Simulated scan of single mutants.
Amino acid sequence: MVDDDEAVRESLKFALELEGLQVSLCRAGEELLVHPHLSVAKCLVIDFRMPEMDGIAVIQAVRSRGFALPAILITGHATAVLRQRADEVGAHALLQKPLAGTDLLDCIRQAIRLT
């Protein structure tokens, strides 16, 4: 999971681990690209709006390194243009924050089943 907001990272990690998922956290896209668990990850959850690299750039960088794993983009401002850009880079889904109910968990489980 990549998000520059520590509270979001920690709360989502807590919720997902309660559901039995293993979660690694990164503060930024650059940190993800050198993370030792990237090669064994099953799914990425990436915030769109971050200071250095936005979520689209992170997905592109991951893809350029040969990793085709599903990526779920989360954002507080889902627009038609952002949805199109997410589709163009092959994002599995684009979810609007605040995340409702089990939407993220359901999306992750679906993405993992497809791999």
Rank of each mutant, 00 (worst) to 15 (best):
L114H: 13
A15H: 07
L44P: 06
S64L: 12
E88I: 07
A61G: 05
I74G: 04
L21W: 10
R83L: 11
I56Y: 01
L104Q: 12
R109M: 12
D47I: 10
H92P: 05
L69Y: 14
E6W: 09
L73E: 02
A91Q: 03
L95M: 11
G20C: 01
C107S: 14
G101H: 15
C43R: 00
Q96A: 09
D87G: 13
E30Y: 04
S39F: 06
H37Q: 09
H35P: 10
E52A: 15
L105E: 11
A93R: 08
C107Y: 08
L38D: 08
L69Q: 15
L95V: 06
A93Q: 03
D106I: 12
E6T: 09
L44H: 06
A57T: 01
Q22I: 01
L99D: 06
D106W: 11
L99Q: 03
V89Q: 09
S39A: 13
R27P: 03
E6I: 10
L25C: 04
L82M: 14
A57Y: 00
G20K: 02
L38H: 13
Q110N: 13
D106K: 15
G55Y: 01
R113L: 03
L73W: 05
I56E: 01
D47C: 04
L32G: 07
I74T: 09
A111W: 04
A100Y: 04
E52H: 12
V8L: 10
P70L: 09
E52P: 04
H37W: 05
T79K: 15
L44C: 02
E30D: 07
E31Q: 13
L94Y: 02
A41D: 05
G66I: 03
M1F: 12
V89K: 08
V8A: 07
C26Y: 06
H35T: 06
D3Q: 08
